[in-house]
Amino acid sequence: MTLLEDESGAEFDSLLPRVGFTRRDFLVGSIVAGFALATQPVMAQTAIDTPADGLVTGIEPLVGADRQAVPAYYARPEGKGPFPVVLVASEIFGVHHYIQDVCRRLARQGYFAIAPDLFVRQGDPTKISNVQLILDSIVAKVPDAQVLGDLDAAVKFATTHGGDAKRLYMTGFCWGGRVTWLYAAHNPKLRAAVAWYGKLEGAPSALNPKQPVDLAPNLTVPVLGLYGGKDQGIPLDDVEDMKGLLKKGSSGSEIIVFPEAGHAFHADYRPSYRQAEAEEGWKRLLDWFARHGSGRG
């Protein structure tokens, strides 16, 4: 069942990048049904598969601020709503099965969850089996301004198709965790956000002019950061720096560190998954949203 059966589809068709590239080809080709190649082999014994019965799910086109076509996966409860909206920002692997499943998990909690393909202009990470190639050929070329604009487009879509513009939230994982901090600074209309093990510090560049540590003191949106004490890519010193900067502001943001967890501890399809910490982090996410007025059922 899909949501978009109106003139928006015609508008999207006019944005397709080449003749003969159909709307269906674009949408199906950009968001895969399975897991990204670079994440193989999948840990089938722990990978979660949330059923879609009782939900409205699908892949629909957004129109980015630069008038480019951006596919997005969404999941929400059946019914008219309006439902609180959660933006979901993916890891470097794109909107593959795991991110889609996160959307369905949120939908089962009463949310309209939407995950746009934030890499669509630069390439398709789901089809690349080499992590370093994904980082070099796609991720390194994605401007933060483009990402923020596409998330704005996702908000517009969700809030005109059953989502509640006054109850807006966000979460993101790894690369998407950093994006969550950035979007919380960009859009003060967010009620709350949860960033999972997102990078906090780094050298500024033309594409990435600000890092979360640069934005922390002036945040107004309450962000919950979930980090692993044994994360080899995010030093605990960076996490402590971020905690100190957040205390200087008035957003009410917090950071929780799980001492025995490494990076990607929520990724249930990978060897890095830690069930206890993942479940505790998810509970904290739901509590954080509820504390900040999600208005769920």
Rank of each mutant, 00 (worst) to 15 (best):
F265K: 02
F35N: 11
I234H: 07
L151D: 00
G58H: 14
V194T: 08
K210T: 03
R76D: 11
V88A: 09
R24A: 15
V257Y: 11
S90H: 15
L224E: 00
C103W: 11
G54Q: 10
D164T: 05
A52N: 05
A52C: 06
F21E: 04
A65V: 15
F26H: 12
L215K: 04
P17F: 09
T160Q: 13
G177H: 05
L245M: 09
R178H: 00
C174G: 07
V56P: 13
F12T: 08
K156R: 10
V120W: 09
G295I: 05
P77N: 14
I128S: 01
K230F: 07
G198F: 03
A264S: 15
K210A: 01
G162T: 02
E78N: 11
K156Q: 06
Y183W: 08
W282N: 03
I48F: 08
L226K: 09
F289R: 00
A10M: 03
F35K: 04
E279T: 10
E240Y: 07
G228P: 11
E201G: 00
P125T: 09
G249P: 10
Q109C: 04
L148E: 05
A69F: 10
G252R: 01
R291I: 00
A195M: 04
A36P: 13
L245P: 11
V194I: 04
E277L: 05
Y111E: 06
A47K: 07
L286M: 12
N208I: 14
R121A: 15
D25T: 13
T180V: 01
G176I: 08
R191F: 01
I31S: 07
Y227G: 02
A264V: 11
A153P: 07
Y111V: 13
A206L: 12
V56L: 15
T2S: 10
S205N: 06
F157W: 12
G34E: 00
F289W: 05
K247F: 01
M242D: 00
S250A: 11
G64E: 08
R270N: 02
V213S: 01
D136N: 13
E260C: 04
D144Q: 14
S30I: 05
L224C: 03
G293S: 02
L55W: 15
R121T: 15
I134T: 12
V102L: 12
R108N: 09
V70F: 07
L190K: 03
A267I: 06
F289V: 03
V56Q: 15
P212L: 02
D231G: 07
S30L: 08
E279H: 09
E277R: 03
Y227V: 07
P125V: 12
G34T: 02
T159R: 04
V85L: 01
E11H: 12
A107V: 05
R76I: 14
R291Q: 07
D66N: 15
G252E: 00
L87Q: 13
D6S: 07
T22I: 08
T220L: 00
K230C: 08
Y269V: 04
G198Y: 06
L236I: 12
G81P: 12
V155F: 02
N208S: 10
Q146F: 08
W196P: 04
A140Y: 08
A89Q: 14
F119D: 04
Y73H: 14
H96Y: 14
T39H: 04
E277Y: 07
L87M: 12
L135M: 12
V88W: 13
Q45D: 15
N208V: 11
V239E: 03
A276L: 06
V70P: 04
T180I: 00
S90E: 08
I138F: 02
L55S: 14
R191P: 02
